[in-house]
Structures are given as structure tokens and as C-alpha cells.
């Protein structure tokens, strides 16, 4: 009982110094601090050092950043350039489809066509698989000799070893794997739109397309902003698909930055964690920049 009265006193105080919000965000902040901020702080520190994961890190100031960004002769400069370029390309190719396909499917399902529940489950199912299973399925699908894709379309395409097919394959696999997440968000959003909006539009004689553009999309604006930003961030972190499907090939054209970061930090040779960390930090800054732009253009301008 004592505790309760104590808390009660606390809330009475809130009106003056307003600690209520901090009670709401406190639990998350605590976990965030311990399990995210401290490790990332360490990661930033490591980016200013030379470190092999085992001995004491040696502080080298900005040397890693200089090498990655400006030393044209260094392999790490090259790794960063191609890796970042490929990552941006992938984001550019994949994100639009990762938004539009689920949006289209969610809208279609919202009209409740026949067997919609079955379709909905089918569309959602791929996102439940771990990436290694996804890759095994699609490696079979894209196989030159035995793959059903080439068989079905009477093709002889080397999907994973030629451009632009390698990008096409990676985008297909990524969209297939990630449809579920965004689709569910859109479905929840669609269900939140009050029916009377549509009824009013019906009275005005609006067409289906008009209703979609004038009512549906604006009502889902905040969720679309969320999915665009989140999908972009997660596609910047693409790793498993190129690693296991194309191996970064042909000729490094699908080698994304995270593959280089991972290999430098935890590869089969001695670890080069300082460089890896610096690359990760710069990638993080790039993601932040892109996400801020998206916020700027998509935010609710009231």
C-alpha cells in the first residue's frame, strides 16, 4: 500500500514538473540505453581505432575515415565505393516494388474477393521464412538447367550470373520475401478508414480510382510514410540475398556494402574491425540522410 501512495504523490507532482511522459517512455529508454546506445557508442569509438577484435584497440583518429573516403589507392576506398553504389542501386530498384506490390495486394484484398483469406495467407507466408530457406527455394527456381522459371518460359537465362538479370532476381526475391510486413500494415490502415467517407463519395458518384486517390491514399498517409522510411532503412541493410544468391557477382556488381563490412569484421582472415566500423557509421549517416529527405517530402504538411 505504501508504494501506491508513493506513486500517487508522484502523479500529483506531475502537473508542475510533468514527469508523467517520462514514466511512459522510461522503460523503453532504459532498454535502449543499455542494449543499443552503449554498444553503438562503442562501435563509433571503434571506428576511430585499429582493432582485430582481440587485443586492445589502437586509437588512430580519423585515419579510417580518411582511408575509406579519400585514399584512392586503398582497397577499402574501392570496397566502399562499389559497395555503397551497389547498395544504393538495390534500394532504388527494390523499394518502389516493396511498397507498391503490397499496397496493390492490400487494396485488392480489402475488396474481399473470393478466397481472399487464402490469398492473404499465401501472400503473408513468405515473410515468415528465415532468409536461408528463402534463398534455397529461389536458387532452385533460378537454376539454369532444372529451374522452373527457365523451364516455364522456355528460356536459357543465367539469372544469377548476368546483369541485369542478377538485379532482377534479387529484387524479385526481396519483394516476395517482404510482401507480408507492409501488406499487413496497409490492411490494418485500410480497415481504419471510416466507411462513411466512402459512402459520401458514392453519393457524389466518384469512381473507384478517384476514391482510391482521394480517400484511401490520403487516409493512409502516415502509414505509407512509415513503410517508405522503414522499407528504405531495411533495404539499405540488404545482406543475405546477395550473399547467398549471387555471391556479390557477376564481377562484384551486386556486392553490397554490408557484405564488405561483415567480411572485414568477421571474415575468414584477421579481423579489420576499425575499417568495418567506420564503413558502418558512414552507411548509417547515408541512411539517415535519405530517411530525412523522405520525411521532409512525405510529412504531413499542416
Amino acid at each position: 500500500m505504501k508504494a501506491v501512495t508513493g506513486v500517487n504523490k508522484l502523479t500529483k507532482k506531475t502537473s508542475s514538473i510533468n514527469i508523467t511522459p517520462w514514466l511512459f517512455i522510461g522503460p523503453h529508454l532504459l532498454i535502449f540505453l543499455i542494449f543499443f546506445l552503449v554498444p553503438i557508442g562503442f562501435g563509433i569509438y571503434i571506428s576511430f581505432t585499429e582493432w582485430d577484435l582481440i587485443s586492445q584497440p589502437d586509437f588512430v583518429g580519423l585515419a579510417n575515415y580518411k582511408e575509406i573516403l579519400f585514399n584512392h589507392d586503398s582497397i577499402f576506398y574501392e570496397q566502399f565505393q562499389t559497395g555503397l553504389k551497389n547498395t544504393f542501386l538495390f534500394v532504388l530498384f527494390a523499394v518502389p516494388f516493396c511498397i507498391l506490390v503490397p499496397l496493390f495486394l492490400a487494396t485488392a484484398l480489402h475488396a474481399k474477393p473470393k478466397f481472399w483469406k487464402i490469398f492473404q495467407s499465401l501472400f503473408y507466408m513468405p515473410s515468415l521464412f528465415a532468409i536461408s530457406a528463402v534463398v534455397i527455394i529461389w536458387k532452385l527456381m533460378f537454376d539454369v538447367t532444372y529451374g522452373p522459371i527457365n523451364h516455364l518460359f522456355q528460356l536459357n537465362t543465367l539469372w544469377l550470373r548476368n546483369q541485369p538479370y542478377a538485379w532482377v532476381s534479387l529484387v524479385i526475391v526481396t519483394v516476395w520475401w517482404t510482401i507480408g510486413g507492409n501488406m499487413v500494415i496497409y490492411q490494418a490502415a485500410l480497415n481504419g478508414i471510416p466507411k462513411d467517407y466512402y459512402e459520401a463519395a458514392d453519393i457524389d458518384g466518384a469512381s473507384g480510382m478517384q476514391k482510391f486517390l482521394k480517400i484511401t491514399l490520403p487516409s493512409m498517409k502516415s502509414q505509407i510514410l512509415y513503410t517508405v522510411v522503414l522499407t528504405t532503412i531495411s533495404q539499405f541493410n540488404v545482406y543475405g540475398q546477395p550473399l547467398m544468391l549471387t555471391g556479390g557477382g557477376p564481377t562484384n556488381s551486386t556486392r553490397v556494402l554490408l557484405m564488405n563490412i561483415q567480411q572485414n569484421a568477421f571474415g575468414s582472415g584477421q579481423s579489420i574491425a576499425g575499417i568495418a566500423s567506420a564503413m558502418a557509421i558512414i552507411l548509417g549517416v547515408c541512411i539517415m540522410a535519405v530517411a530525412s529527405l523522405q520525411f521532409f517530402f512525405l510529412r504531413d504538411k499542416k
Partner: peptide, 20 residues
């Protein structure tokens, strides 16, 4: 700030996180 920090890929954080 929370959103911003979330954007850093967490590759090299593995070791400090394990230490915690």
C-alpha cells in the same frame, strides 16, 4: 535522436553487446 541512432547497421556492435 532515437530514430537516427537506429539507422546505424549493428554489425560491429556484436562484441560490446555480448559484453553487456
Amino acid at each position: 535522436f532515437l530514430m537516427g541512432t537506429m539507422m546505424f547497421p549493428a554489425v560491429v556492435n556484436l562484441i560490446p553487446l555480448y559484453k553487456i
